[in-house]
Structure formats: C-alpha cells, structure tokens
Amino acid sequence: MDVGREEALGALEQAEAMDAHTRGRGRWYAGYATVYAAASCGLLLALGLMPSPVTVAWATPLFLVVIAGLTAFALSRPVQPRGYKALHGGMIAAWSGIYTLTVVVGATAFPGEMLWWGPGALASAVPPLVVAYVALRRGRSTR
C-alpha cells in the first residue's frame, strides 16, 4: 500500500470526525442517568417522609413507570456508548446497595425522619450522577 503523508493526515482527520460524531450520539446516557437520579431521590423522599401503604402503592409504580420509560428510551438509541455495560452495571449495583440500606435502616429506625431520608435520597442519586458525568466526558472526542 502506498500511502503518503497527506493521505495519512486526511485519513486521521476522517477518523477523528467519525469518532466525534459517534461519541456525541452516545451522550444520551448522561440524560438517562440524570433522570434516574431524580426519580430515585423522589422515590426515597416519598417513601421515607410519608411512610404509609398508600405512599408505597403510588410511589413504587410511578418509579417503575419512569424506569420503563428510561429503558424504552435506552433501547431506541442508535449508539451504545463505549463501556456502557460496565458503567450501567456498576451504577445499578451501587444504587441498589444505597437504596436498600436507606430503606431497610430508615423504615425500622427513622420513619419520617428528614435527617435520615434526605441524605439517603441524595446518596442514592450519587451513583447515577457519577455515571452521567463519566458519560458526558466520554462523549467528547479523545483523538
């Protein structure tokens, strides 16, 4: 193959353009994770500050509807960002741990206590917000 300097530079520019275009379309995951963070915060505040079976009856299905909407949104995206599975899996694992701890300890020891449920709700938003930040950074071209 005979490739000159100009041709090589042109190919590298082309690769950079392709990289930037594809990466940019992978940034949707930042929006996904931000909505997830807000929904998680709302769910924990509702469950913790209005502890009753009625709250569980509307807040949990509402959260599930949001998650179903997010899942449908994710499945319709044309680009699955680089490292998506690990990023999402890590986020769900960390969020599950914080959510479970907040609910189990809060329901038994601090029902209706803002000082427990407020920080717990904010802590549950941390994993999705961290991956949102990572997704935004990865969405920028690195070449």
């Binding site: 190919a11 082309q14 690769a15 392709m18 990289d19 930037a20 275009h21 594809t22 990466r23 379309r25 992978g26 044309p78 680009v79 699955q80 960002p81 680089r82 490292g83 998506y84 599975k85 071209s141």
Partner: peptide, 18 residues
Amino acid sequence: RFSVVAALAAADRVEFRF
C-alpha cells in the same frame, strides 16, 4: 471500511442505520 471501523471504535455497539 476505514470510516465504518472508526465510527464503531468510538462505541460498544452502533445501529446499522446510524
């Protein structure tokens, strides 16, 4: 093929149409 591979390298999976 170079453009296709460059586009795919920036993601885990990309839709054919994209």
